[in-house]
Simulated scan of single mutants.
Amino acid sequence: MTLRTTNRHHRPKPAWTAARALALAAAERGLSVFPLSPSKLPAVASAHRDQPNLRCTGQCGALGHGVHDATTNPARIRALFAAAPWATGYGIACGRAPHHLIGVDLDVKNGLDGIAALAALAENRGFTVPDTVTVATPTGGRHLWLTAPASARVPNSASKHAPGVDVRGSGGYLVGPGSLGTRGYYRYAADTDPSHIAPAPTALLAVLTPPPAPPARRVSTQSRTGANGALDGLARFVSDAGPGETNNRLFWAACRAFENPRIDPLRAERVLLDAAVAKGHPEREAAGTIASARRRSGASR
């Protein structure tokens, strides 16, 4: 594998050097990291930029898969930064062992006050926001770090639970402290203990975790009509999704459809895609979710 490296005739920029050092230090504490550009986006160019419809999360072995590149391996981290000499920060992947990190991003801009909104949510749901690692953002906001049980599946969301309160869960990432963005540095807030990541309160986890999907309706394997009825039920399950739930419900429903030997996979794909799009879900994203479910279930075309 050929890696892009910094020019040996030019000294690395201070922000790049600092970001790499901070990323390596974070990895020593069990946090999976990867380089970020000043815009807070993954700094390593996409490995499949000429194949926009290919859904690869790193199985190909190349660098350039965004948050999926995140690692605690020092050699891999150095390779990632070598491939992105323009990096000025680093991202920390959420949901990864051993911490199973949840990030609560509190925006304070454009008329939003996520800090006050989280306090109101805590009072309404009966939990106390714990003292935990807190990172101050350049725009006056805060990132709170919390741990979760390994079994928790917290989805990413934006202002779903309270205005200005965004959540970074599985598949999401936080900007690491010490990173330089276009508006300034991300730094630990005053009085923060960087080694103390508090557990998420149970009541907060209940808010952030979607309810379990209902069990699939029993369907006779002898009846084509029954199979169609099962697919119709899965489509209704997608259609009944609340705000922010459509993608999770679509994935669950597609997995169940592809696992049912009496349901035609092509028809399932079409029916569930139509149900998701009718809910306002972007067609391309919905198609990708269905394709992921097909791969997970092992269904063939």
Rank of each mutant, 00 (worst) to 15 (best):
G184C: 12
G176A: 14
A189R: 14
G171W: 12
T202N: 10
A162Q: 06
L205E: 09
D193G: 02
L144I: 06
A150C: 04
S157P: 03
P177L: 03
D166R: 00
Y185M: 09
S179K: 11
K160D: 04
S170A: 11
W145C: 14
T182F: 07
K160P: 00
G171Q: 12
G172I: 02
R168D: 02
P199R: 05
T209S: 09
V207S: 07
L204Q: 08
V165E: 06
P177C: 03
H143P: 03
P155F: 08
G164T: 10
P155T: 09
H143C: 04
P149H: 08
G176I: 05
T209R: 03
W145D: 01
S179Q: 09
P163L: 14
H161S: 04
A190P: 02
S170Y: 01
G178S: 08
K160C: 03
A203I: 06
A190N: 02
L174G: 00
N156D: 14
A150S: 14
T182R: 15
S195P: 00
L174C: 10
A152W: 05
L180Q: 13
S179P: 08
G172R: 04
H161P: 04
G171S: 12
G178P: 07
A189W: 06
V154M: 03
T147V: 00
V154S: 07
T182S: 13
S179N: 09
D191A: 11
R183E: 15
S157R: 05
A162D: 06
N156M: 11
T147I: 00
P210E: 06
G171E: 10
A148Q: 08
R142L: 14
H161L: 11
S159N: 13
T147P: 06
S195T: 14
T147Q: 10
A148W: 07
A198H: 05
L180E: 15
A200R: 02
G171R: 10
T209A: 03
A200E: 01
L144S: 11
W145G: 02
T202R: 12
P199D: 13
A198Q: 01
P199N: 07
A198E: 00
L180T: 12
L146C: 03
L205F: 10
D166V: 08
